[in-house]
Amino acid sequence: MRKPLFLIMVVTLVVMCASLFVVKEGQRGIVLRFGKVLRDDDKKPLIYNPGLHIKIPFIETVKNLDARIQTMENQADRFVTMEKKDLIVDSYIKWRISDFSRYYLATGGGDVSQAEVLLKRKFSDRLRSELGRLDVKGIVTDSRNRLMTDVREALNNGTSGSDEELQTNTADNAIASVVARVERETNGGPQPSVNPNSMAALGIKVVDVRIKQINLPTEVSDAIYQRMRAEREAVARRHRSQGLEEAEKLRAAADYKVTRTLSEAKRQALIIRGEADAETTKLYADAFNKDPAFYAFIRSLRAYENSFNNNDMIVLSPESDFFRFMKSPKGTTR
């Protein structure tokens, strides 16, 4: 008796657990019954807000859609400005789902990649059209913020077919075909409040559009860098030549100053030496005048000292006047 009751309780608990599902905060739920979306009276998918909900167990399944803001990174692409100059633009888009039922039908069951493909095509064509109206200066200055605002508004609200510079036919045709399929699936008529070539027709709202980086093409950048390098090298050579010129001037001035200083020093030395020689000669003359014999004797002693202090041989006649102070009083040489 207890065993069947226990089995009944287990089965009941399993059925209750399978009947309940939770939609997390930041998500929306869509219930599928046998693979088909549950719809309301207007043939639109039923959307479940965050919270606890009930479904038929084992028959219905839940598909969750992300309601948060999502970021789509765009690969850097080449764009042409009003001046017919190429730019490589790197950008990203912030977007979120605004109409979950329309988004689910337009993307074939909430496929994010399909939504981003359509969004990227629309954004790329619209950005190309907007950049074609501006020059490079306007793109990189204050016009850049206005450009991003115009692109965002064009994505959200669409563009009129009367625009002369409208270049988004390919993307608009793709979005229009998706919108037509959504209308067929919901069996509803056209909605005047939604532009068929806007992202709102897909249930998407673009929150923000930003350009991360703007670069020149590689070949243009290389040419600019080569020209800048050549200009910098020319400036460097000019500075080097000016430096060498200044160095030569300083070196010449230093050499001239050194030569002038040395010449002045030599002149002063010669003057001092001449004055010293004159003073010496005067002293010798005074001494000679006072005692010429003694002066001659001293001069002879110095000559003997300088002549006889080495092993050199001197051949002189004994009668030479050189030996007059070495002779004995009798006149013979010692």
Rank of each mutant, 00 (worst) to 15 (best):
F100I: 13
R302W: 06
E245L: 05
P57A: 11
L147R: 08
D163Q: 07
S241V: 05
L147V: 06
N311R: 14
V207T: 02
G188D: 14
E279I: 02
I97A: 12
Q114T: 14
K122E: 02
E153K: 10
A174Q: 13
I69C: 01
I298M: 07
F288N: 04
A115D: 07
E153P: 01
I59V: 09
Q213R: 11
L316E: 04
K282T: 02
V207K: 07
G109N: 07
L46G: 07
M1P: 02
S124H: 14
R152V: 02
V22D: 03
R334M: 07
I139H: 03
L216D: 01
M82Y: 06
E305F: 06
K36L: 11
E245Y: 00
D40V: 13
L119I: 12
T149W: 01
A252V: 01
M9R: 09
D208P: 00
E183M: 14
I211N: 04
F322R: 11
R128T: 05
Y256N: 07
D277E: 06
A278T: 04
E233C: 00
A247Q: 10
F322D: 01
Y104H: 11
S113K: 13
T332M: 02
L262N: 00
F297Y: 08
L301Y: 01
A176Q: 15
S162L: 11
L38T: 08
R251K: 07
T159C: 11
A234F: 02
K63E: 11
L118Q: 10
Q268K: 06
A67K: 13
A265W: 01
T186W: 13
Y103E: 06
M148G: 00
N157Y: 03
R238T: 04
A76M: 11
N187Q: 14
T170D: 10
E130Y: 01
G161Y: 08
I97H: 07
E219N: 11
N310W: 15
L119M: 14
Q242W: 05
F288K: 13
R126Y: 02
S307C: 14
S263Y: 00
R152F: 00
P318S: 06
L316M: 09
D42E: 15
R152N: 02
I47Y: 12
S19W: 05
V235N: 05
T12Q: 08
